[in-house]
């Protein structure tokens, strides 16, 4: 028999080179992290103040200014400087009409056209959605997929007039929509955020970022209504161990307690 240590070494050698993640793994987890950062504003602050130190001075060559700008864009807090370098991620600009439902733009545009992009948003009929609709149904008065997305993004055959453009992945569409929804929430436009999420639901009904979508939807519903116990219950039932549960509760419960005594956990249970 061969020396067992020879077998052992060979096995370890082969095992060392295995277990590598695929590109799809890397992209998917990155998207999940981005979505998580979008939902947890404290992470944005942490990123700005600390990690560059962790990464080390050898990375300084990558350009801290450029990285900072990128981060500001990602979090929608870039102001004028951010806007100057922003892409379609910031299609929701201060110049956008207040009642416009911002479009979920093509991620291909977002990432390849590294130049300011005019907002793709379209003015829509005022979103005077009833409370019940915001709580449980999809908003109806929204732009359709056809007028929000370029044909390539929604699977239609490209027209002879359209410039060739690679179709963004569903993941890119999801992230783009989540960014927009978060930006709208930060601006206090929860109804438009809900509209964006509703549109996303139609275009990508079963995406990778389901948990983040549900959390954002719950936050938006709470912000729009001042309370949304159904949303909290729904979210917690579906994602009981989600890292976003506390955030959803924190955002929704205080208002609910003010308006309705029947609801829910005591404040001491929140951290």
């Amino acid at each position: 028999m061969t020396d067992p240590s020879g077998w052992a070494e060979r096995m370890l050698e082969l095992a060392r080179d295995a277990d590598e993640p695929s590109r799809a793994d890397r992209t998917r987890v990155r998207a999940l992290l981005v979505a998580r950062c979008l939902l947890e504003p404290s992470l944005a602050a942490a990123a700005h103040t600390g990690v560059s130190g962790v990464v080390g001075s050898s990375k300084a060559a990558l350009g801290s200014k450029a990285l900072l700008s990128k981060a500001l864009v990602a979090f929608g807090i870039g102001g004028a400087a951010g806007a100057a370098t922003s892409v379609a991620v910031l299609a929701v600009t201060p110049e956008s009409p207040p009642r416009a439902v911002p479009a979920i733009s093509s991620a291909a545009q977002s990432n390849h056209a590294k130049a300011p992009t005019a907002p793709v948003s379209r003015a829509t009929p005022a979103l005077s959605m009833p409370a019940a609709l915001l709580e449980g149904e999809e908003p109806k008065a929204l732009p359709t997929a056809r007028n929000v997305f370029p044909p390539a993004a929604v699977g239609a055959a490209p027209s002879a007039h359209s410039a060739p453009m690679p179709a963004p992945s569903n993941l890119s569409i999801e992230l783009d929509a989540l960014r927009r929804a978060q930006q709208l929430l930060h601006r206090g436009d929860a109804r438009s955020a809900l509209a964006v999420l509703g549109e996303l639901e139609r275009l990508v009904p079963a995406g990778v970022l389901g948990e983040e979508r549900a959390a954002t939807r719950a936050l938006a519903a709470c912000a729009a209504l001042g309370r949304a116990p159904a949303r909290i219950a729904e979210f917690v039932a579906r994602y009981p161990s989600s890292v976003h549960v506390e955030r959803v509760r924190a955002a929704c419960e205080p208002a609910a307690q003010g308006l309705e005594n029947s609801h829910t956990d005591p404040p001491a249970s929140r951290h």
Binding site: L33, V34, L43, A47, V55, K59
Partner: peptide, 23 residues
Amino acid sequence: EPDEAELPAGFDVLYDEHFAFVW
């Protein structure tokens, strides 16, 4: 990646360098 999602500054680099190792 052709359509990389964006991460915060610094974090981005940390992720890129060590994702495979962490995985």
